[in-house]
């Protein structure tokens, strides 16, 4: 019996070693892929929760705006009506129609009482940041609109950030799946190398090694990205 050719033994050992290395690389990439999957899942969930919160905030602001602006509109109309009745009373008094003038003033006084109560109820007259600085000035409506949208905008911004994170991790996860497919090809080539004759073994080993090297480099580039 003769001893096996050292060259044949060396190639066989190289193939087994590369197969093991590809197995370990596949385990690591599978771990990274699972991690990317978990991170994308969490980001996706956060994105959905923020979208829900943003829609709830927009709904709340809609109801609140309806109440606040409705109160202000009614108040402004009654204020105008009251002023109009005051002017009417003055004109009727000047014309000598004292009964009509008294009636107009009474109606104006009633409306004024409503206006004063509505001002106490209105956010635009009780909140110092939005209340008019002078008696005849208008409340700070622009500031109100900006403040109203601030929370919803903040939530939408957070939602967008999480959606971007989801896309990023999802892309990474997809890339890891592609790397796993390459590693499967490498393992297939190494398996063929083990089963093939001496001459073809080298070819399969070289191709498998190239695929393994590309897989490792790709994995590193995904990690750095």
């Amino acid at each position: 019996m003769t001893a096996p050719s050292p060259n044949t033994e060396r190639w066989r050992s190289v193939v087994v070693f590369l197969t093991m290395a590809a197995t370990v690389a596949a385990a690591i990439v599978a771990g990274l892929q699972a991690d990317a999957g978990i991170r994308s899942q969490v980001a996706n969930r956060e994105s959905q929760v923020y979208a829900l919160l943003a829609s709830g905030e927009i709904f709340r602001q809609g109801i609140r705006g309806d109440y606040d602006l409705g109160t202000l509109a009614d108040l402004a109309q009654e204020m105008q009506d009251s002023l109009s009745l005051e002017i009417t009373g003055l004109e009727q008094e000047a014309a000598g129609d004292l009964d009509s003038a008294a009636l107009a003033r009474q109606r104006a006084a009633i409306l004024r009482a409503r206006v004063e109560r509505a001002q106490a109820l209105s956010f635009f007259y009780t909140d110092p940041a939005h209340a008019p600085g002078e008696p005849d000035a208008l409340p700070n409506l622009e500031g109100y609109v900006e403040d109203s949208a601030a929370e919803a905008n903040r939530l939408v911004k957070l939602q967008n950030e999480q959606a971007d994170a989801y896309q990023r991790w999802s892309r990474k996860g997809d890339s890891y799946v592609a790397v796993l497919a390459l590693l499967a090809i490498a393992l297939f080539l190494f398996g063929l190398a083990q089963a093939a004759s001496v001459r073809t073994r080298r070819t399969f080993t070289v191709f498998g090694s190239v695929v393994l090297a590309v897989s490792i480099l790709w994995t590193l580039s995904i990690l750095i990205d």
Binding site: S13, V16, M20, A26, D35, I38, V42
Partner: peptide, 28 residues
């Protein structure tokens, strides 16, 4: 659960490494 799952992957990699060493033992 997700954190636990991540840590499990570390364990799985260790098991794969163990397989690697045993493979080396097989061919040497």
């Amino acid at each position: 659960y997700q954190s636990q799952q991540r840590s499990y992957f570390v364990g799985a990699v260790l098991l794969a490494l163990s397989l690697f060493w045993l493979g080396l033992a097989e061919i040497t």
